[in-house]
Design a protein around this nucleic acid. Sequence first.
DNA 1: TTCGCAACTTATCACTTGATAAGTTAAATA
DNA 2: TATTTAACTTATCAAGTGATAAGTTGCGAA
Lengths: 206, 206
Amino acid sequence: MTENQIEESSTRYNTIIKIAQKFFMEHGYQAVSTRQIADACEITQPALYHHFKGKKELYLEVIRRTLNTTENDINNILSENLEVEKRLHKFSKYMFSNFQEDITKMFHDIYHIFDADTQKIIYGWWAKGFLDPVVKIVEDGIKQGELKNLSLIDAQPIEIGFLILNTIKGSLEPKLLKNLNEADKEFFIERKSKLIVNVLLSGIGK
Amino acid sequence: MTENQIEESSTRYNTIIKIAQKFFMEHGYQAVSTRQIADACEITQPALYHHFKGKKELYLEVIRRTLNTTENDINNILSENLEVEKRLHKFSKYMFSNFQEDITKMFHDIYHIFDADTQKIIYGWWAKGFLDPVVKIVEDGIKQGELKNLSLIDAQPIEIGFLILNTIKGSLEPKLLKNLNEADKEFFIERKSKLIVNVLLSGIGK
DNA sequence: TTCGCAACTTATCACTTGATAAGTTAAATA
DNA sequence: TATTTAACTTATCAAGTGATAAGTTGCGAA
């Protein structure tokens, strides 16, 4: 075990990140204080600084873990060789179920907090976890003849990947979902995902 | 002139709102201090409190004006009786040109700052300015036979309005646009809007 | 048994925050 | 001309903020 691995398997260290993740994702970086996080962890505020260099570094680790977890989940979802429609539907449902907080806000914070180099690193994680899998779906879909030849609409697979991601991202409604019970939530997500995929594939025009 | 109208036409009052708008839209409510706004207005921080009861009230007025301006602009854009495709294209271009900051963040702030009643009032402004016009486009499009009968995809016009709005909203890329010159910006917006409308109307499926 | 060190705590720092109180000034009104 | 008042300013507040220094504790290795 390396020093880093010991640290990462420590219970307290993980608790801090889990709780910090909850707070940061719900309220954003600025609105969360180190004291709030520490209180929720039932430790004193300076104790945080034993595990993390500062608030920024804690936030960065939260982001890293979030994106890393997502990458694994999405790759599992997409490992089955399904048709495009089913893959997109699964992906949409995953996003609705797991990103009940605006990730747009997260990227806004990243832009204003971290320097350009760190931003690039984070963008790399995001691309690997989110964008690449969706672009893969699009590319596979074209190969299988399930999707249009994109040159017809003067677009690149990566552009369509972005568009799909943005459409789903823009449709997430964390506040609405929070007030539903599990059954209603499931129903809402199923219906919404179906609609989004339907429009993405067939459009609303005649 | 009522007392309110005098206040609203005052130069200083308007300057404060304009500058506050710029700051709030770029950084979000929490990240902007009353001192930053005051400094940019070249007045002292307590002078703000002569014009506004508090930071919250200033922010609320910024939101009201932003949504009100948008409502007027959009109604002008959509007053021409064009076909659905051209209307959506115009609308998309307007959004890209005028909302160079994430409006998602604005709604996040609203949710965490204001009480439920105030939130409802703001939602009313938003619905009137953004949602209603888009729903009108959809309804007109169905009447004119340019769009599918929505019962085919088990959807309501308002749902499709949301989806269109969210797709465009999610695709806004303020950071990217900021680094482009006017010509490149125009080109980017034109191209992106065309792609979005194309996918919304025809989809990417075969 | 002693030592070392991880994992804390208490106390405190400099700084920023939104907000208020009290005094000033210049222009409109009576 | 006297008075009022809008539009400020200076001074100051309490409540927070992220961060550091220095001391404590308890456990595992030597």
